[in-house]
Design a protein around this nucleic acid. Structure first.
Lengths: 334, 334
DNA sequence: CTGTTAGCGCGTTCAA
DNA sequence: TTGAACGCGCTAACAG
C-alpha cells in the first residue's frame, strides 16, 4: 500500500479511502491511485485489514461429515450464500464428537471466524450457549427447542403428518417406522408426528413397529431394521423411514426377501437426495430443501454478525411430499 | 495478552515467549503466566499473530462442486489432513468456471490463504503457473502433464488397462466406452488405455463405440449415451464407463431396454462411490482412493508451504479393480 | 479534499 | 531470565 501511495504521489490514507469507498477523493487523484494499483498489481492484505477492523470475514461450518449428500447440499448452500456476502467458508469436521465440536468453536475465540453454523446438534445442547452468547451462531436442521439459538429447519412434525396422511389415505393401517437412535429434534418430532397421525385415525400402533437404526442413518442399518420389521407379526404393509438411505436399505431388503416394492410393501423416505430417482422403484419421499436450508442459515448468521435488529430465532422452510414409485395401496385392506 | 501479562506481573514478551515455546522462561514465572491464562480464559488472537508472521494457516480448496461424492470424499481427506497439521480449510466453489477459479486464487494474493489445492484442472491450464509460481499450489486428480505443478492422482492409464485386460480376459471383443466431453487428463489417459488395450489384443475398435457424455458425468447423460450404444450396430457386449454415475445410468438404460446386466451386457464403472453396492447388480469398478488423494494433496501442499526441499512434482496412488456383479463373460463368443 | 498519526495484538529484536 | 520498544499493513480520527 505504501508502494501504491508513493507511485501515485499520495498518502496511504488516500489509497485506503479509495479502496474502501470512504470519504471523498478528487477524480484525478483517484485516477492516479487506480493506475498505481493496476501497475503494481496491488491487493490489500486481509491479514492487516482484518486485524485493524477486528473481523475475519470468515464463517465456520461444523458438520459431522461432508460426504453424506444431505450435509453436502447444505454445505453447498452455505458456501454460495457466504461467497455472495463476501465471506469465506471454513469447514470443520466434528466427526459427530462433542469434543471436536468444542474445538471447532474455539476458532471463534481465536478470531479465526466471525460466526459459526452448526449442523446436527442434539437435544440437550445447552452447553452451546456458552459460545452462542458471545459469538454469532446458527443451527441448521437440528436444534434444541429448549435452547435459544437461532435456527433454520423444516417443520418436521407437519412433514411427517403429511406423509402419514398420505399412507393412511392409501389404505395402510399397519404402518411401521424406521427411526434412529440419535437425539435429534427431527427424530423426536417425526416420531411424534407418526404417533399422533395414527392416533388421529384411531389406529393403535403395534409396539414392534417402531425400530431404531444407527445414529447416522446408515444403509446397512436400514437393511437390518427392515428385516426385523418384515419378520415381526403382524407384518407391516408400509414402512416410513426417516431418511432416504434407510429407505433404500429397506427396499433392498424387501426385495432380497422375495417381496416387491410397492406391491407387497410400501416404503417411503425422507430428505430426497440424488439416488431416490436413480433406479426403480423411484422412492416416494419427503423433500427437504437442503441447499436453501444452507443459504438461509448463512443469511441468518449474517444478520447476527451485522447486528441487525430482530433476528428471527426460528425459521421454517417449506417441505413437500414427492410421490413416486415406492408407494401404493396395500394389497388387501383388512 | 496485556491482561494476562498484568495479571501475572510479567511483560507481554514473556507471555508470548511462553505460548510459542520460544526462549527460556523460569518455571515459577511460567506457572504464574499459565495460571493467568487459565483464569482469564485467554486465547491468542490469530488475526494479530498471523499478520505479524505473515501467514494465515489457512488453505484453500477449489472444487467445481461439493455435492458430487467423488469430490466430497477428497474434500474430507484434505480437511482431516489439514486439521492434523494445524490448518483450517477454506472451501471455494468454482462452479466449473475459470473466472471463478481465478477469483478463488486471488485469495492467495490477499493473504487469506497460504496455499491452494485445485481439483478438476483441465488440459491447457498454463495460466495457473501465474499463481503456482508465486504461491504453493497442488493439483488433485487432474493436471496437465505439460504444466509443472505438483499433483497427486492415480495412474489412469494403467488403471484403464487393468479394467480392459479384465474385460478382454472375460472374452469380450465388442467393448464400448462412455467417455466424457471434458478435457481432463484422466479422460485422455483412459481413452488411450482403452485404445491401446484393444490394439494390443488385435481388436479393431468400432468407431461408434466411443461416445462422450456430459463434462460432469451426469447420470442422465450416461443413460442417453448407453441408449446410443445399444442401438448402434454391432451392439457392444460390454460398456466401460469412466465414472460410476455414468455406469449407473448405463445400467438403468440397459434394464429399461429389456436387457439384463451382466447376462446380456457387462457394465463397469470408475471411482467406486457409495452407491456401487447399494443395489443389484453391485457395480464392478476401478477403485480410486479419494480420501487418500485428498490427504496426500494436503501433505504435498504442506511440504511446499514449509519450503521443504525436493517436493515431488508427481505422486501416484494405488488403484484397484473391484469385480462385483455387473460384469460377466459375453453370452456368445463370436 | 488530503496527509499525519495512532494503534489493532502480536512476535521479535536488543539491552539489561 | 526478563522487559522495552518496534513494526507487520491497514483503517480511522483528526488536523489542515
Amino acid at each position: 500500500m505504501a508502494d501504491v501511495a508513493r507511485e501515485a504521489n499520495v498518502s496511504v490514507a488516500t489509497v485506503s479511502r479509495l479502496i474502501n469507498n470512504q470519504g471523498v477523493v478528487s477524480p484525478d487523484t483517484a485516477e492516479r491511485v487506480y493506475a498505481a494499483i493496476e501497475k503494481l498489481a496491488y491487493e490489500p492484505n486481509l491479514l492487516a485489514r482484518n486485524l485493524r477492523k477486528n473481523e475475519s470475514w470468515v464463517i465456520l461450518i461444523l458438520s459431522p461429515n461432508f460426504t453424506n449428500p444431505y450435509y453436502a447440499h447444505i454445505l453447498s448452500g452455505i458456501g454460495d450464500a457466504a461467497a455472495e456476502l463476501g465471506y469465506s467458508a471454513l469447514i470443520f469436521n466434528t466427526a459427530d464428537n462433542e469434543v471436536r465440536e468444542k474445538e471447532g468453536l474455539e476458532m471463534l475465540k481465536k478470531h479465526r471466524a466471525d460466526g459459526a453454523i452448526l449442523m446436527a446438534s442434539e437435544i440437550g445442547c445447552d452447553w452451546l450457549l456458552e459460545y452462542s452468547d458471545h459469538y454469532p451462531c446458527v443451527q441448521c436442521s437440528e436444534y434444541d427447542p429448549a435452547v435459544d439459538i437461532p435456527h433454520v429447519s423444516i417443520d418436521n412434525y407437519q412433514a411427517t403428518c403429511d406423509a402419514m396422511e398420505y399412507l393412511i389415505g392409501l389404505g395402510h393401517k399397519r404402518i411401521a417406522m424406521i427411526s434412529s437412535e440419535n437425539e435429534y429434534v427431527s427424530t423426536k418430532l417425526r416420531l411424534k408426528g407418526y404417533c399422533d397421525s395414527l392416533a388421529k385415525h384411531g389406529i393403535t400402533p403395534c409396539g414392534d413397529h417402531v425400530v431404531y437404526a444407527s445414529r447416522d442413518y446408515s444403509f446397512k442399518s436400514g437393511q437390518v431394521k427392515a428385516r426385523e420389521l418384515l419378520t415381526s407379526s403382524p407384518v407391516p404393509t408400509a414402512i416410513f423411514c426417516i431418511s432416504d438411505t434407510l429407505a433404500l436399505g429397506a427396499i433392498t431388503t424387501v426385495q432380497d426377501m422375495g417381496l416387491r416394492v410397492p406391491e407387497d410393501v410400501t416404503v417411503i423416505g425422507f430428505d430426497d437426495v440424488e439416488f431416490t430417482t436413480m433406479f426403480h422403484p423411484y422412492i416416494t419421499t419427503v423433500v427437504q430443501p437442503c441447499y436453501q436450508l444452507g443459504r438461509h442459515s448463512m443469511q441468518l448468521l449474517y444478520a447476527q454478525i451485522s447486528q441487525k435488529q430482530d433476528v428471527p430465532r426460528q425459521q421454517f422452510l417449506e417441505h413437500q411430499l414427492n410421490v413416486r414409485e415406492s408407494s401404493a395401496p396395500p394389497k388387501s385392506v383388512d
